[in-house]
Simulated scan of single mutants.
Amino acid sequence: MLRRTVLLTFAGAALGGSLWQGAAHASEGRSPYGPLQPPDDVGLALPEGFTGRLVARSGHRVAGLAWHAAPDGGACFPDGDGWIYVSNSEIPLLGGASAIRFAHDGTVRDAYRILSGTNLNCAGGATPWRTWLSCEEAYRGRVFECDPYGSRPARPRLAMGRFKHEAAACDPDREVVYMTEDEKDGCFYRFRPTDWGDLTEGTLEVLCHGMVWKEVPSPAALVKATRHQVDDARHFNGGEGCHYADGVCYFTTKGDNRVWAYDAKASTLEPIYDADSPLSGVDNITGTASGELFVAEDGGNMEINVITPQRVAAPFLRLHGHSRSEITGPAFSPDGTRLYFSSQRGRRGILTDGHTFEVTGPFTI
């Protein structure tokens, strides 16, 4: 197969204060964080100056809570002088989500469930009003709005559609929530709530050819799947992670190994990564305030790669000894100094052996 080159193409979209302008091709390059060092005692190969630790493992106690199986999508939330990391559980019928509360120095204060009894909770997204949207990757899957602080019960947000949900990203500028769909002919959606900050009611729309959004007639999908209800809907091969920053929604498609950028202001859509290397099996995605994107691999050689505003794609970390797993749930602490993520199936390659890690170091913030 002819190897594709990294494509970072983008017209006039702001990314973390930097401009990615015009069409450009760039081969994989050197990471701004330097080369990876030999793996540490938990199997993490990191750049010099970074350290990693294992903070949770499926079936093992974390502050009294048995950590869930198959950890997947995650996000961080501020909590006084500390923070909270939320993680989904992608197992059938007993999925849900859990949270770990950290003190200012990174020590674990508490751990608890925020959602239980749901199905295949894969990815999701954080809202500006500090709730977690946990998405079911199942036939007629739902979105649940959860309280990461553990005070209020989770609630289904059925107006956001019943389909094989993957990830969600809030756009506070246009007051919409973008969503991906994990199907070979999945769609890219946006939900327009009637009142921003309240996801109970609203309109579900799908991106169509010609870069127009059209309303999905039946979000509940009782007769026909949402992705097949609008004739000129644009289809994507396996929608995965989703991240919004500075007017642009980035999302990944695993079927063609692409990272896309939807510029909401200019109403354009382009792949910013379209290659076989260094990223293979693009999945969850997050970013920093400086404009760097961090993309996790489903399989591949178990890396999280960084894509910089300077059009460089390179490995940031590699996890050794987890060859039958995938990397999930990358999320930065509110101050940007710690990165959390999981190995969904761990060293043994089974859902009950999930590992959740923390990496600390001099990230560009």
Score class of each variant (00 low, 15 high):
S89L: 04
S267P: 00
N305P: 01
W129V: 01
R57S: 13
C242H: 00
A56S: 10
F251A: 01
A103G: 14
Y340I: 03
I307T: 07
D173Y: 14
T286W: 00
V86C: 10
C187P: 00
A159H: 05
E175T: 11
D185T: 11
Y149H: 08
G255Y: 06
D335I: 10
T308L: 10
P334N: 02
I304P: 00
P334E: 04
E201S: 13
F50H: 01
M179I: 08
I304M: 05
R174M: 06
E90T: 15
T364K: 14
V312I: 12
D195G: 00
R109T: 15
R4L: 11
M160L: 10
F357N: 04
S342I: 12
S333N: 06
G150V: 02
A168T: 04
M1Q: 13
I100R: 14
W213E: 04
R190I: 09
P78T: 14
A169I: 07
L339I: 07
L115M: 03
H104K: 15
Y178G: 05
A56M: 05
F357C: 08
G329M: 02
G361E: 04
G82S: 05
D246N: 10
A126N: 08
P92V: 15
G197F: 02
A70E: 09
P330G: 08
C208L: 07
V206R: 01
P315T: 12
E358M: 13
A296G: 11
R130M: 13
W20S: 12
T328K: 04
G300L: 02
G96E: 07
G300E: 11
G346R: 03
L44E: 10
G281R: 02
D335R: 08
T127G: 11
G247V: 07
E205M: 03
V295M: 02
A314G: 05
T252H: 10
P193T: 06
W132F: 07
D72I: 12
G291C: 04
A99I: 05
D263T: 11
V216F: 07
A154G: 13
S325P: 06
R109L: 15
H235I: 04
C76K: 09
V248K: 02
A138Q: 09
Y189M: 02
G210F: 02
T194V: 14
G287A: 07
T360R: 14
Y340W: 11
T226G: 11
H209I: 05
E215Q: 14
H25P: 14
T252V: 09
G74F: 11
A45D: 01
I84K: 10
